[in-house]
């Protein structure tokens, strides 16, 4: 029973992994990586939810009786684009922070701000 919902277990494990990295890591780049993993887990949640047991890709062909739900897939394409944009912006900020502070370590940056 529990294993029949294995896709949710994967989602939860990925989500917690990503969340942990975001909170725990002091490296700004790693935080972005964590954020990506966190977002990916949600993508998988959407994609797996659209899967219909025994369904095929939603293209009308002869012999197909059941189709997977295409809507979540379409939605998640949008979400992936948003995720890419976020990552790009986040990395740009990290580059600028590195230029301004000479470091991508959160603690080092905070130390500099306190001293300033």
């Amino acid at each position: 029973m529990a294993l029949s919902l294995y896709n949710y277990w994967i989602v939860i494990v990925l989500m917690m992994t990503g969340f942990y990295i975001v909170i725990r890591s002091t490296n700004l780049v790693k935080k972005i990586v964590g954020l990506n993993i966190f977002q990916t887990s949600v993508f998988i949640l959407y994609i797996s939810m659209g899967k219909v047991e025994g369904g095929t890709a939603p293209i009308v062909t002869d012999g197909a009786t059941a189709y997977s739900n295409p809507l979540p897939h379409v939605l998640i394409l949008t979400a992936i684009v948003v995720g890419v944009a976020t990552t790009a912006l986040g990395l740009t900020l990290v580059v600028r922070i590195k230029e301004a502070y000479g470091s991508v370590d959160e603690e080092a940056i905070q130390r500099q701000d306190r001293e300033a």
Binding site: F19, V22, L28, K31, L35, F38, Q39, V42, T86, L89, G90, L93, V94, R96, I97, A100, Y101, I109, D113
Partner: peptide, 20 residues
């Protein structure tokens, strides 16, 4: 101020978590 960068980054992380 260069702290605008870190402020923006911090907001990006928390905002993205919220949006997700």
């Amino acid at each position: 101020d260069r702290r605008a960068l870190t402020a923006s980054y911090q907001y990006l992380i928390m905002g993205t978590l919220g949006a997700t």
